[in-house]
Write a protein that binds this DNA or RNA. Structure first.
Lengths: 231, 231
DNA sequence: ATTACATATGACCGAATCGTCATAATAGAC
DNA sequence: GTCTATTATGACGATTCGGTCATATGTAAT
């Protein structure tokens, strides 16, 4: 169980944003923390507002004072998780000198982040699962797109032959899909501790294959990216 | 939208299993098909029994005649999807002659399967997401474990130096995590058609590096797999 | 103390949901 | 046709849920 220090910001409500240690912020944080752990325990959709307010030990009306509905708190939490993940990725890749170290950095950042934050991985993964549903929360894909774009951005620094956007997107999908896909499966068993060790050796293999993939893609943009292929 | 020919079997209820084309089987199939598409549209947890019976155009009691609750139909469907996927994997890997073709076969099988069955991928992925939740359907991990074991089994045929079970498990996680992880992310954008093409070139790279990884692992089992690392 | 504003509360309502059950419809055996 | 086991039904009760609102409490400024 990881402690959370900073919680996602509320929408500005008054002219004095965080001037004083308003109790509202603490209450909001209690609600977010309760939701975060409950989502991990029961799943997002199985968690009712009553569950959240009960766990946070506040009245039900209080929830609706801070959030308009469950959709909002879900989106706030996912936004926040991805923001934190992006911060770690940026930090880890800051000193990258080439494509190889950048790829390694991205993968390493995911491992670092998720191995210390199981709840957040569950949130991330459940959010991603929502993306596959036709009628899911509106705009829930936004933080994930931002996340993909950031990864593309980092890799692009070291790819001198500029690749078409769809190709870059697929590369980013491959990188993050690979990491989180592996993680989610490895988590079926309680390999928790050894996941980090294993992925370290697997990482090399991943980096190698991704690099080869990128190199091939950058030599041959591929006729399949023509608009004719869309449909 | 893919048509389903065969649906998961009901628990035997009478002495005459499928002797006649009992209408019960057709009704059951209607319910399963309705659930399958609804789960894709709305998500498993957001779909009520009423939704299912309304879509299947049967009375509500009929649902409870065929299934004890939603948990049962969910598990039946996931069992069934994984069974179908395994069949395709077996078929594709039947003629594998070495590790390389076996790995290629496994990945190719996933692509073949999922590219024609979006609903089933969503089911698969949502089921996997449920695995990360503490209180999810009891025993829902069983089909996924079977699936991992089968993949290990196929690869093991061509690995002559026997690897420790945890290492094999991780390799299997990497293979299937990659495919489904990539797929799920690629699905954020409507790249549907080009996903297959892209993953084809990624496949080569992945196969090459996984082979290297397996070869290295089979030479050096690694001290990190000692029981001391558990805990 | 008083005033003004921000924050918190839980009773309450209507809608939705789960699961049951007595009854009805159907199909096959005779 | 009659009889019997199987299959299907939807009204029903109990419960839970999302969301509202009038009211209460806390807090900072004067």
């Amino acid at each position: 169980m990881t402690e959370i220090k900073i919680m996602p910001d509320p929408r500005p409500r008054t002219r004095k944003p965080g001037r004083h240690n308003r109790r509202a912020l603490r209450t909001r944080a209690k609600l977010l923390e309760a939701a975060r752990t409950l989502f991990t325990e029961q799943g997002i959709e199985m968690t009712s507002i009553d569950d959240i307010t009960r766990r946070a030990d506040v009245g039900k009306g209080t929830f609706y004072y801070h959030f308009t509905n469950r959709e909002e708190i879900v989106k706030d939490l996912i936004d926040w998780v991805i923001e934190q993940l992006l911060a770690v990725i940026d930090e880890t890749c800051r000193d990258s000198t080439d494509l190889k170290t950048a790829l390694e950095g991205v993968i390493k950042a995911h491992v670092t982040f998720f191995s210390n934050r199981w709840e957040d991985f569950v949130l991330f993964f459940q959010g991603r699962s929502e993306l596959t549903i036709e009628q899911s929360y509106e705009g829930i894909e936004t933080p994930f797109l931002k996340y993909l774009e950031r990864v593309e951005e980092i890799l692009e620094r070291f790819i001198y032959r500029k690749l078409p956007a769809p190709v870059m997107r697929r590369i980013a999908c491959a990188v993050v899909g690979l990491v989180s896909g592996y993680y989610s499966f490895a988590a079926i068993e309680s390999l928790d501790d050894s996941v980090d060790l294993t992925i370290a050796s697997l990482r090399e293999a991943m980096v190698a294959s991704l690099m080869r993939f990128i190199q091939e893609a950058s030599i041959q943009p591929g006729p399949e990216t023509l608009p004719a292929a869309a449909g």
